[in-house]
């Protein structure tokens, strides 16, 4: 019964949000690709959102859900801008590798 109590409480939500956050950070660090990096940042955003909603539900304050609603919109906008930047970077460099990402550090060859 104790196991069932723990499973029905807020702990699964905390475990899942931690899982999402660590998945995002792990993918961002280990796969050196710009498209994967943007996707990983979205996953981290979602993990943090789940944390907010869980805390808001179990503490009885609806403001956490409001914050999630606001951050969802900002995350969607930042995702669109990130995609535009990656597509234009690929047009310039023909590569998606993060290790070659030194566009602003390069000296002008002309």
């Amino acid at each position: 019964m104790e196991v069932l109590k723990v499973l029905a409480s807020e702990y699964p939500f905390y475990v899942i949000s931690g899982l999402l956050i660590f998945l995002g950070i792990g993918i961002f660090i280990l796969k050196k690709n710009l498209l994967v990096a943007i996707l990983a940042l979205e996953v981290v955003f979602n993990g943090i959102n789940l944390l907010f909603v869980t805390a808001s539900h179990y503490l009885g304050d609806p403001k956490g859900k409001m914050i999630v609603l606001l951050t969802l919109a900002v995350a969607a906008g930042s995702f669109a801008i990130g995609l535009i930047l990656v597509v234009n970077y690929y047009r310039l460099k023909r590569s998606l590798s993060m290790e070659e990402l030194k566009l602003l550090g390069e000296k002008d060859e002309e």
């Binding site: 196991v3 069932l4 109590k5 499973l7 029905a8 699964p12 939500f13 475990v15 899942i16």
Partner: peptide
């Protein structure tokens, strides 16, 4: 409570 626990266990898996 049991239904909620089982559903959350499946979702976590």
């Amino acid at each position: 409570m049991i239904e909620r626990a089982i559903a959350l266990l499946i979702l976590t898996g």
